[in-house]
């Protein structure tokens, strides 16, 4: 089998006495879509944020395409990288937040071109061409000059997806991308994500949208209390869960 695009091994993370991640292993292969489900407080978001080093982990490691995020290995030691280096490696990872976090003082186009220009050093013209292409892809070609506040929540989240894709990342992480949206706006965001998945983008999605998981995921991961309890293809995990905690969770959300 190919080397995993995302390789999470033995990750532990505590906030003071509270152990949020207790030895998590997860491999995602290129082009795969992995959906993480689980009750709130189970460590899903923390795991996702550890993958792009927004959270520092206490033990274990995370590698993207064979390269550690946030650390450099020499022998059996991991040296924490300097911020500049971490920032550069992060450009390989797209991140979509629950609350969009678009830059409100920049137009939609500026939001999308900011990181390619300032983090990757692309020429402005090239970055703008890419932005035009990506905004068309998320169905917002006509909104390039609008400010985020002038858009609906669903439109804002689609801009955020375009912004994450503008880095041409190796993997895109979605942290509950539809949880802050009005119910009638969830569909348009999920449609964009489905199209992305079909185009072969490697994705890790934390979500409560079980329908999306069933339709799009190659692997569904169920987390509880800082551990991966069960993982496998959606039909197995969602329809014939082996673990009683998975069954208990699904009986509540389905």
């Amino acid at each position: 089998m190919s080397t995993p695009m995302v390789d999470v091994r033995g990750v532990h993370k505590s906030y003071g006495p509270l152990e949020v991640l207790r030895g998590v292993d997860l491999q995602v292969h290129p082009g795969e879509v992995t959906v993480i489900i689980g009750p709130s407080g189970s460590g899903k978001s923390t795991l996702l944020r550890s993958i792009n080093h927004l959270e520092k982990i206490d033990r274990g490691y995370v590698a993207i395409d064979g390269e550690f995020v946030g650390y450099r290995r020499s022998g059996d030691r991991l040296h924490e990288l300097r911020e500049r280096e971490i920032l550069r490696r992060r450009t390989q990872i797209g991140f979509v937040f629950q609350n969009f976090h678009l830059f409100p003082h920049l137009t939609v186009r500026e939001n999308v071109t900011e990181a390619p220009i300032s983090a990757q050093g692309r020429p402005r013209g090239q970055a703008e061409a890419l932005a035009t292409e990506l905004l068309a892809q998320v169905g917002l070609s006509d909104k390039a000059d609008a400010y985020p506040r002038q858009l609906s929540g669903g439109q804002q989240q689609r801009v955020a997806i375009a912004r994450a894709l503008a880095l041409r990342p190796k993997v895109v992480l979605f942290d509950e991308p539809t949880s802050a949206l009005d119910p009638e706006l969830v569909g348009e965001v999920l449609e964009v994500m489905k199209a992305l998945a079909r185009s072969g983008t490697t994705m890790i999605v934390v979500t409560h949208e079980i329908g999306f998981a069933r339709e799009v995921a190659d692997t569904v991961v169920f987390m509880d209390a800082g551990q991966i309890v069960e993982h496998g293809p959606p039909r197995q995990v969602l329809d014939r869960p082996r673990h009683h905690r998975t069954r208990a969770f699904l009986s509540k959300v389905l």
Binding site: R90, F95, E114
Partner: peptide
Amino acid sequence: GQLEAAAALGIP
């Protein structure tokens, strides 16, 4: 969240 988004995008 603004700083977090900027950091996640790798902006210097």
